[in-house]
Design a protein around this nucleic acid. Structure first.
Lengths: 335, 335
DNA sequence: GACGGGTCAGAAATCGCTTTCCCGACTAGA
DNA sequence: TCTAGTCGGGAAAGCGATTTCTGACCCGTC
C-alpha cells in the first residue's frame, strides 16, 4: 500500500461522496464534470453530498486520468528583470482565461542550469514557454524537440516547427540611432549588454552596418543592470560622445541616476536612450527615450500559440515585432 | 479505459523501461529513486534502458502515488506591481533550492475572484502563499483554515496557526514623518492608497495618532499606481504642503515625473517620499526617499515557514518587519 | 545436512479520478 | 403483447508511478 499522507484529516475522495450520495463513483464524476445526462434528482443528491463533505477533487488524480495538467511552465533567465515579469504577466493572464495556470522557473542567468530546468519544468506541465536569450543556438536546437509543445520568446527558433516570437532588435537600434542622427549627433556611445546575449549581438550587428553616413559609434562594455549603467558614467563622459545608446532601460536609468548625481544635464549635455520600454522608463526624470517592446503582448501571443498546439491546431504565424520608438525628454539636439 | 492522450508518440512509461531491462516495474522505481539496495549490474541495466528509451518519469503519477506535488502556489493581487514580483522572486528562488516549483496566480486586484483562485491554486499544490492586502479579515478568517498549509504575507493573520509575515506600515510612516519633521516640515500631504487596502489603513491610523506636536497632515485621495501620482500633482501643489508622503513608490515616482514636467524643483519646492523601496526608487531623479520593505526576503521567509509546515514542524515565529527609512535626495529642508 | 538470517527482486495493491462497456428498465411502435 | 430503441447508472479497467509483502536464494553455523 502506498504510504498515507501524514496530513491528519484524511482526504475526502470521490468514493466518500459516492457513498454519501448512495451512487457509484462514476456517477459522481459525471455530475462533477457536468457530463452526460444524469437524473436531476441524483445530480442534486451528489452535489449536496459533495457540499456536505466539502469535497474537492484531486487535481493530480484527474490529471493522471485525463492526461493533462492544465498547467504550462515558463522559464525565464531572471525574474528580477521587468521585461520577463511582463512576459510572465501576459502569459499568466491569457492562460487564466482558458483555465490554465502557470509554473515559473527562474534560471538566475545560468544557461547550463536552464536546460535542466526547462526539461524539468516541462515534465510537470502540458507545455512550455522558453525565454532564453543566452542559450547557444545549437544547444537550443537539440533541446527544443524534446520540449514540445514549446514556444520561444524573444528570439528566433533555430529549428522548424517551434513557434517563436522574436524581436527585431536591429530595427529598434536603427530607429534610435536614426532619431539621434536627426538631432545632429555624430558621436554615439553604445553601452553594450552581456556578450552572450542574443539581443546584444543583434544590436551590435545593426550598429556595425550603419555605413559611412552613419554616426561614429564607440562601444563601452557595460552590462544589463542598473548598477552597470550607474558604474560607467565616467567612461561615457570621457568618450566624448554626445549621446549614450544603452543596451536596455535598466542600464539607461542607472546612467541617468549617476549623471543626475554628477550634475550633468540630460539631454543638454548628453542624450540618453534605453531599450525595452519597461514601465518605469516613462517616469524617470527626464523621461527615457526608448525602443519599446510589447513584452506583455508577447506573453499573450505565446499563450495563443501554446493553446493552438495544445489543441493540435496549426499555431498562428511566427511573429517578429519591431520595437516602437518612444521619443521622450532624455534626448535632444547635439551640443 | 481512459482515453489515450492524442499526442502522437506514446509516452515511455516505467513499464517500457522494465521490459527493456528485463526487470519488474518495482525495480525500475527503486533504481530511479536510488532506494534500497539493488544489484549494481541490474541497476546499470535499468539506467541503460532508461537512457536508451529516453525515459522521463511522469511527475503526475508520482505525485499521486506519494501524495505530494513538490509545488507551491502564490496568489498575488497584481503581478504588475514590483512589490509582488519581488515576493514571487524570493519565494521561487528559495523553493527551488528544495526542489519545489512555484505556481503563480494573479487575481488582478479582484478580491472576490481571489477566494476562488486561492482555493483552486491550493488544490493543485502542496501549500500556498497568500498575498491579499484587500481581502476582508472575516472572509480571510474563514478561508484560511481550508487552505492550510498556508502562509500570509504583508498582513497579520486573523486566525491562529497560520504563519504570517507582516509589515509594520505604521512604523514606516512614522519614520518618514519624523524625518520630514526634523527637516522642518509642518504641513504634509498624504496621498492615500486604495481604501480597502490593509496597508493604507495602517498608514492612516499611524498618521492620525501623530498627536499635537506632529505636523499637520492633509489627505489627498490618490491610488496605488504611477498614473495616480502623476494625476494629483496639482492637488498636491494647491494643498500648500511642503512635503508629499505618498502611499507607495509608484505613486511617488508618478508624482516626481509630473513635478519634473511642471518644472517644480524637488526637494527645494516640495519634498516627496514613497513607500516600499522598490528597486527603481534608488534610480529616479532625484532618488526617492522611501520606507523600504524587504519584499524578496519576505518571499524567502514565506518559503521557510511553508517548508516547516510541509515537514510537520512547528514553523518559525511570525515576523513583523519594520520598514527601513532610506533617506535620499527627494527630501530636503522645508522652504 | 538442516536451519536461521539476510538480500534482493517480483507480484500486487494503492493513490483518486475518468471513461468505456454493459445491463436493466422504461418507452414506443407494430 | 412483443420487440426495438433509449436512457441512465454501475462495474471495472485504466492513467503511471510507489511501496508493502512475500518468496527465492545464498551463506554461515550448529
Amino acid at each position: 500500500m502506498a504510504r498515507m499522507s501524514t496530513r491528519p484529516a484524511q482526504r475526502v475522495t470521490i468514493a466518500h461522496v459516492a457513498e454519501e450520495a448512495g451512487v457509484s463513483r462514476a456517477t459522481v464524476s459525471r455530475v462533477m464534470n457536468g457530463l452526460a445526462t444524469v437524473d436531476p434528482e441524483i445530480g442534486q443528491r451528489v452535489r449536496d453530498a459533495a457540499a456536505k463533505l466539502n469535497y474537492m477533487p484531486s487535481t493530480v488524480a484527474r490529471s493522471l486520468a485525463i492526461g493533462r495538467t492544465q498547467t504550462v511552465a515558463i522559464v525565464v533567465p531572471d525574474l528580477a528583470n521587468p521585461m520577463f515579469q511582463e512576459t510572465l504577466r501576459g502569459l499568466t493572464r491569457a492562460a487564466a482565461k482558458e483555465g490554465y495556470r502557470v509554473l515559473v522557473a527562474d534560471s538566475i542567468e545560468n544557461p547550463d542550469e536552464e536546460v535542466i530546468l526547462a526539461r524539468e519544468a516541462r515534465r510537470r506541465c502540458d507545455a512550455l514557454v522558453l525565454v532564453s536569450p543566452r542559450m547557444d543556438p545549437s544547444a537550443l536546437g537539440s533541446l527544443l524537440p524534446e520540449l514540445a509543445p514549446v514556444v520561444l520568446v524573444n528570439r528566433e527558433s533555430p529549428v522548424d516547427g517551434v513557434p517563436s516570437l522574436a524581436v527585431d532588435y536591429g530595427a529598434g537600434v536603427r530607429r534610435i540611432v536614426g532619431e539621434l542622427q536627426r538631432l545632429g549627433h555624430e558621436r554615439i556611445a553604445y553601452l553594450t549588454g552581456p556578450e552572450s546575449s542574443y539581443g546584444n549581438r543583434a544590436r551590435l550587428a545593426a550598429l556595425e552596418q550603419l555605413g559611412a553616413d552613419g554616426p561614429e559609434v564607440s562601444r563601452i562594455p557595460c552590462g544589463a543592470m542598473f548598477e552597470d549603467g550607474y558604474r560607467v558614467r565616467d567612461d561615457v563622459l570621457a568618450s566624448g560622445a554626445t549621446a549614450a545608446v544603452c543596451y536596455n532601460d535598466l542600464v539607461a536609468l542607472g546612467l541617468l541616476g549617476a549623471l543626475h548625481e554628477a550634475g550633468v544635464a540630460v539631454p543638454e549635455r548628453l542624450s540618453v536612450t534605453g531599450f525595452d520600454g519597461i514601465p518605469f522608463s516613462r517616469f524617470s526624470s527626464p523621461a527615457l527615450t526608448t525602443a519599446s517592446v510589447p513584452q506583455t503582448q508577447l506573453g499573450e501571443q505565446a499563450w495563443a500559440r501554446l493553446w493552438d498546439l495544445l489543441n493540435a491546431r496549426e499555431p498562428e504565424h511566427d511573429l517578429t515585432v519591431t520595437p516602437r520608438l518612444e521619443v521622450r525628454a532624455s534626448i535632444g539636439p547635439a551640443r
